[in-house]
Design a binder for these strands. Structure first.
Length: 419
DNA sequence: GCGATCAGGT
DNA sequence: CACACCTGATCGC
């Protein structure tokens, strides 16, 4: 057993080596330009994006891991004081540029830390990840799986990002004369923007389609990120060139859209796994009605009701860089870990991130208590007191998801010290 | 004045 | 229900 040697997405003192899965802010809390607590391992894309985010960072600390390649580290066991070897391999997490999962193996067995990930069954990257994991594990079990449980709840389902991207294009095409605002973060959703840019046609002054590329406006820092990622043609910071603009999510609001609409007809599109993103504080907006209206802009029949017109000017599309529930189920079935822990403690499935996965688990000790409770109930039959007990348990479960608890846990959200 | 942390918002 | 991450308040230095 190894103690306190490795930290993943956790930047406090006390580890010999540190691993970064990707550059989103909730995974870099505690990391700064002057941080120097040890070697920092990350993917090559993350390394390229690192300097603009942490200017002045001592780059000699960075250790770039190529995807799909084993690396061997020599660490000191805090138990015995003896040298021990840990091997690690990075696998594309299909989340945002540079995002990887890490599979560690050593005296402690195999540990897989997914970071944030999207396990799209039909995706090429998922297929590659599958093959890499199969050959890396070489028939060995994953002893502990640390999994992105953001949407580990059956109520979260969304289409593949290909389908969602087409939904976004369909919305844009249904507003040919409108300006379009898309809410994005400082990293991620590049594939969506590229799809939009490459699919849409620019019209000339006679309203005829011309060969010109439909560029998308982004703010200057975001353009720099695009350039680092090797995307030079599809993006611009010149507002006059395009009717489509990607803006920071925090500046995407009903008020913003209302303001823009006083000047030009504008539609906002929020690509997010959370379709209720704008439902908060309805009354405080002073708007007469925010009735959610569902429209059918799908390409197929499988995913209905995922494009929502939330507001006169705003659509949300279930374009998610996290695994939805069925993705998670598929992944866990594939990995079959002995133990499993969620890495997102503020998720709606915080209480037991894997509660909803108990049925694909069988005898695993971690989920024994849920299985036992359920067996006990089904054994007793459905008398009134059992129904009450069941309702009480469901109520307890739901009340434990209450917001105050979530906000309390926010700051401990991501990262782990692998003991 | 600076960074780290937290609360509260989009 | 909470994505990622911004602003602003507060605290210790």
């Amino acid at each position: 057993m190894v103690l306190g040697m490795i930290s993943v997405d956790r930047w406090a003192e006390g580890s010999q080596v540190y691993f970064l899965t990707h550059l989103h802010a909730d995974h870099t809390a505690g990391l700064s330009s002057r941080w120097k607590k040890g070697p920092l391992f990350c993917s090559s894309i993350t390394a390229k994006l690192f300097s603009p985010k942490f200017p002045g960072f001592d780059l000699s600390l960075l250790r770039v891991l190529e995807i799909g390649q084993w690396y061997s580290l020599s660490l000191v066991s805090l138990w015995s004081g003896l040298e021990t070897r840990v091997e690690v391999i990075a696998i594309d997490a299909n989340h945002c540029p540079g995002a990887v999962m890490y599979l560690f193996r050593g005296d402690f067995g195999n540990m897989l830390y997914t970071g944030d990930f999207r396990w799209e069954v039909a995706s090429k990257i998922t297929e590659m990840g599958k093959n890499m994991l199969l050959s890396a594990l070489n028939n060995h079990k994953v002893d502990t799986l640390y999994i992105d449980n953001t949407y580990c709840n059956p109520s979260y389902s969304f289409p593949s990002r290909d389908v969602a991207a087409q939904q976004v294009v369909n919305i844009i095409n249904s507003y040919p004369e409108h300006d379009i605002i898309i809410g994005i973060d400082s990293l991620g959703k590049e594939e969506l923007l590229l799809y939009i840019s490459n699919t849409l046609k620019v019209k000339d002054k006679d309203q005829k389609e011309c060969m010109q590329l439909m560029q998308i406006w982004v703010w200057p820092e975001r353009l720099q990120t695009m350039h680092i990622l090797g995307l030079h043609d599809n993006f611009t910071t010149k507002t006059t060139l395009t009717r489509i603009r990607a803006v920071p999510r925090y500046s995407f609001s009903i008020e913003t859209l209302q303001g823009l609409n006083t000047m030009r007809p504008t539609i906002g599109i929020m690509p997010s796994g959370l379709p209720w993103a704008l439902n908060k504080n309805k009354s405080s907006c002073g708007l007469p009605s925010m009735k959610t209206e569902t429209i059918d802009l799908d390409t197929g029949n499988r995913y209905r009701n995922k494009v929502e017109k939330q507001h006169e000017y705003i659509y949300t599309v279930a374009y998610s860089d996290h695994s939805c529930f069925t993705d998670i189920v598929d992944f866990v079935k594939f990995i079959c870990p002995t133990h499993m822990k969620g890495i997102v403690s503020s998720s709606s499935s915080y209480v037991d991130p894997c509660y909803h996965l108990r049925h694909i688990y069988g005898t695993s000790s971690l989920y024994g208590k849920y299985m036992a409770e359920e067996d006990r109930e089904s054994g007793k039959g459905k008398c009134k007191s059992d129904e009450r007990l069941k309702r009480k348990r469901i109520k307890q479960y739901h009340s434990s998801l209450h917001k105050s608890r979530v906000s309390l846990l926010r700051r401990f959200k991501c990262g782990v010290k692998l003991d």
